[in-house]
Design a protein around this nucleic acid. Structure first.
Lengths: 348, 348
DNA sequence: GACGTCATTGTGAGCGCTAACAATTCATGG
DNA sequence: CCATGAATTGTTAGCGCTCACAATGACGTC
């Protein structure tokens, strides 16, 4: 180790020490061919000795590439966004990109615009927005940014490049599962109206019922929270005995509230009322009873989102046309069949 | 708007258009005094017209400041890390810094070293590591990095600058609460041995019992998951009637598993066995029964973490000496008192 | 009316790197 | 022994910005 210096060493310092030109150092670092093996080794040794690291700003300035992507998200403590965020970062890192995140409390025109500005100041080459509300997508469509933007988790039918799990299909799987189990009608506790995924799930539910010649019953709405599920559950409990035997709840957290409300009302799950959720959060398996739900592959969403964004940045033509849809998967547990699925690994 | 151009406009372009020198443009952007109001307005108008944005790389190169911080985390889908991550980003943004994240599947010497390298390539000025395991903190202590590193969520007693919730205090609150309710002994389901927070919680529990002249009973271990809680719960159920009336579980997710196991074994909570968790995840309020638990202020951890890191980067002397401890808070619900705390906003 | 003072603006030199091109070295064959 | 071309290395010019300093002009003062 050379003595501690005020300024970190530069490429020129390394070059001088190794007795070559700075360009040769650059070649070694850039893995260029046409560098003599002996020279390369000497340079690498000096780099090691001096603890030299390339200055990323200078590099970015010269190459006009920052190799940084931005992600805008909200509700990052929820399972879905958190999983997507994780997958996005992992996929980007695999491609050698750094990810800068902005987590917002709410996605409005103002906060989104500020977030894009902030990321732009940071020099990102593109942005993935985890934007599940219609208002957010609309704002994004209106906002002009100097870099490409991909939306993720917005459901289908938006005219920005996007990647999402096929929510309608998920709702269809859930609803069909209940119909196949012999339930005459399936009720639905939907998510907030503004959420595209909520709309898609409700649409899938409605379409499936109609395809089976069933009149869709009253649709309830919650705000994704267990509390709103609890309240809806209390209302649903009032319909037991009057044709209510099955509920498809738009997410697992609300389903948790529904389960509690039903339990408190003396309604048994699944004997009296079967319940299906959506998301498959890690806790679902341990609800009382364990919850049948629809699993979303957030990891796939992240990978595809980054792939799409990089295609746009590098000007390649996309491998898959946007919007890209990921298939969800039904996970059957005891909330729909009394004796189905114990927790994995637990002896019966 | 000027016609679309291949290269984004530079400061020189703006200067030419506005009939000033590039330096004056820089002054306007930097909010320097001593720019005539009229000139400032003209420059700003041209900037607006041309859609000019400062090039962050050039700026960083000239100022030797990237204004970017790094965060290394793992298990970012768990409530604690996710909340901390959110708070860190928000606090950093408030200070005008961009945050680049690396989410790891596991924190080993190798992955941590790689993560710091990756962030270093990205030019971060400092890093906050969310490192709750002893092994991770040890690795971090050994790893040399060219920028300051702050550890968060590691509990007390590490010799790296750190910020954490006072886990021992939390455990003390939980244990005292159960003792105060008349329980003779309090059992403990701890987290993984390698986790500093788990160790601190167990230590707090043990110390509180000993201070009350109670012999600490057998300590069980889980891995934070509901499943491990479920298994431990089955074991605990076997001790009911043989002196087991209260359990302090090291996190809410395991508590969920414990509750289920007890319920399945015909043990009533809280009449037969009282249960306290740790974390206060949003779902806890809706468990069966709602869970008494210890709330951690992750937001405060994030704020203090960023504050500490910035002090180190800017070479100021810290306002609060590290390690910084944040006070946790007991939240009493029905799992310890049969009639306590209904969900907020739910009429009784 | 020359001079100091202040506000305002401009000039030149880097920051540390890569890209393009120029120069050198070296082996090879006629 | 020198031409030839490939391999290797060096030189020069930016990338777009900020900093330090120089220059300009307006204004009041003695």
């Amino acid at each position: 180790m050379s003595p501690a210096q005020l300024r970190p060493p530069t490429m020129a310092d390394v070059a001088r020490q190794a007795g070559v030109s700075h360009q040769t150092v650059s070649r070694v670092l850039g893995d260029h061919p046409n560098v003599r093996e002996e020279t390369r080794a000497r340079v690498l040794r000096v780099i090691e000795e001096m603890g030299y690291r390339r200055n990323s700003s200078a590099r970015a300035l010269a190459t006009r590439r920052t190799r940084t992507l931005g992600v805008v998200a909200s509700d990052t403590t929820l399972y879905g966004p958190a999983s997507t965020l994780f997958a996005l970062e992992e996929a980007a890192r695999a491609e050698g990109y750094l990810v800068s995140t902005v987590s917002l409390r709410e996605l409005t025109m103002a906060t989104l615009s500020e977030a894009l500005d902030h990321l732009s100041e940071g020099g990102v080459e593109g942005v993935v927005a985890i934007a599940p509300q219609r208002s957010a997508v609309d704002a994004l469509a209106e906002l002009r940014s100097p870099f490409p933007v991909v939306v993720v988790g917005s459901g289908q039918g938006v005219d920005i490049p996007s990647v999402s799990v096929d929510q309608r299909l998920g709702a269809t799987l859930a609803t069909r599962h209940l119909l196949a189990a012999g339930h005459r009608r399936v009720w639905h506790l939907a998510g907030p109206e503004d959420w595209l995924e909520a709309a898609d799930r409700a649409a899938g539910w409605r379409a499936t019922l109609e395809a089976a010649d069933v009149e869709p019953p009253l649709l309830l709405r919650g705000d994704w929270s267990p509390l709103s599920g609890y309240r809806a559950g209390q209302e649903l409990a009032g319909w037991v005995g009057r044709g209510l035997t099955a509920v498809f709840v738009a997410n697992d957290q609300m389903a948790l509230g529904v389960l509690r409300a039903l339990r408190e009302a003396g309604v048994r799950t699944p004997q009296d009322v079967a319940v299906v959720g959506f998301d498959d959060i890690p806790e679902s398996e341990f609800f009382a009873p364990p919850l049948t739900t629809v699993r979303q592959d957030f990891s796939a969403v992240g990978k595809q989102g980054i792939a799409l964004l990089l295609e746009m940045i590098e000007g390649r033509s996309p491998a898959t046309p946007s919007p890209i849809a990921i298939e969800p998967q039904l996970v059957v547990r005891a909330s729909t069949f009394p004796h189905a699925a114990q927790p994995e690994g637990v002896p019966l």
